[in-house]
Structures are given as C-alpha cells and as structure tokens.
Amino acid sequence: MLSQQILNGLVTGSVYALFSLGFTLIFGVQKLLNFAHGATFMAGAFIAYYCTISGMPFLLAIGLSMVATGVIGIVVDLVAFRPLRKRGNAEFPALVSSIGVDLVLISIAQQVSKTQVLNFPFGTFPVKFFNFLGLRISLLQIVILATVAVLVVLLIFYLKKTSFGRQVRAVATNERAAALLGVNVQSVFLQTFFIAGALAGLAGVLIGLLFNSMQFLMGEPYMLRAFVVVVIGGLGSVPGAIVASLMLGVMQSLTVAYLPSGLTDAIIFTLLFIVLLIRPNGLFGDANAVAGGTRQ
C-alpha cells in the first residue's frame, strides 16, 4: 500500500516537474516570475480537449496543443514582459502584468467552456493496468513517467550540450556579458518562453488525462505548487525543480492516503517553511543564484 502510494506520488510529481521546469527556466533566464504559467497549463489541456472532440487523432491534438501553448508563452513574453524590461526594474511590474495575462486566459477559457468541467471522451487513452511486485500501474502512468523522463533528459541535453543551450545558460548567468559576446538575448528569451509554454501545455494534457477532469481554474493550484517546488528546489535550478517536484508529489499522495485530506496544503507549506529555515536558498540553490544576484 505504501509503495503503491509512493508510485502514484511519483507519477503526479513527474507532471509537477514538467510544469515547474518551465517556470524555473524563465526565472533562471529572466529573473522574472511568470504567473501566466498556470493558465498556459490549463490552455494546454483545453486545446487538446477541443481538438480531440472535434475528431483529431489524440497524438496530433497533443502536438498541436504543445505548439499552441509554446506560442502563448511567446505572446506572454512579447506582451507582458518585453515592454517592461525595456524600462528596467521589471520584477514587480512583470509579476502584475503576467497575472493579468493569466486572468485573460482564464476568462477566455471560462467563456469557451461555459464554466463546465470537461472530460476527455472515454477511450481517448487506452485504459489498461499492469500488476507487478504487488503494484498496480496503469498504461497512462507508465507513459507519463516515460514521457517526462525523456523530456527531462532532452532538456538537460539541450541546456548542457548544444550551442543554443549554452546561450540560454550564458544569459541566465550574466545577461550583459552574453550580449557583448554576440548572444541575441531577446531570441533566447523567446526560446525559453516557447519551451516553458510547451512543457506547461503538455503537463496540462497529462493532468487532464490522469484525473480526467479539466476546468478553467485548474492551473491555479498548480501554479502555487510550482512556486513551492521552485523555491524548495532553488530558484532557477533545473535539478532542484525535478527533485522537489517528485518530493512534493510523493508527500501529497501520502498525506492524502493517510491523513485527513484538508491537511495536504498545510503539510506542503510546512515543508516549504522548514526547508527555507534550513536552506534559505533552496535545496539546490546557491546564495549567488537568488533573484538578480550579480555574479563576478
């Protein structure tokens, strides 16, 4: 029973990771918090849903939804962040304007769905269960774990081993120095926003499938959790976001199983509080990496 709960927690946690990676990536590169990330996640689920019920093959619907949420990411950067960046000191104004974009997307979704809870039609994803070592795991859970693992490996490869990834890290470390070295900072921003948006969109589809329930506010609790994950993991840290997401998923699954359900959030935020007392910069954060810290 315990190992079953841990397994379920790891599946949910891996989707948190997908969602949080984009959030932490944007923070790492721009030092800005993108609060439209939750609505982007919701948009991913919605777009995949409407494509599916209009008869599109499910895989194509997922692909289309990821491209669309990637584009939403780019629009967030162009509309909510870039004009403020030009004026400098964008931290707080950008936070507010990204909440604005979040609300716009939510309102659109509310209109489109007429505030209904949406479910993927039965059979969108084959319902199949496997038993091994006394654990029960669905095909969907296996596919989610595998997809997230592959995407995380690809993302780390992209960041560490490709020229584009090096440019992203260069901008994250020192934006001015990167510009002086010929790195097109604006295009790095657009790239990271596209990747972050597409990952959030996919996370939305996967959560929609996993719980088979989607509604226009579904992104908001995830937004709050991603914030916790990113702070516990260390702002801007990719491995930190992955570890913290899995931890959070397991914690949540265990509290739901063994404790009164109302305690889940209380426990999550107590955990956040304890981690911050012991390691103020998060598990993987270093003192220099925190918000706009200059590095020499």
Partner: peptide, 17 residues
C-alpha cells in the same frame, strides 16, 4: 564579467557565437 557558472571551455565556446 565571465560566465561564472560555466566551465572555462564553455566560456570560450560562448565567445565563438
């Protein structure tokens, strides 16, 4: 203004951009 988190070699590679 070196790229403090990146290796010496990676700094040089970024320079090549």
């Amino acid at each position: 203004q070196i790229l403090a988190d990146m290796s010496v070699y990676e700094n040089l590679l970024v320079g090549q951009i």
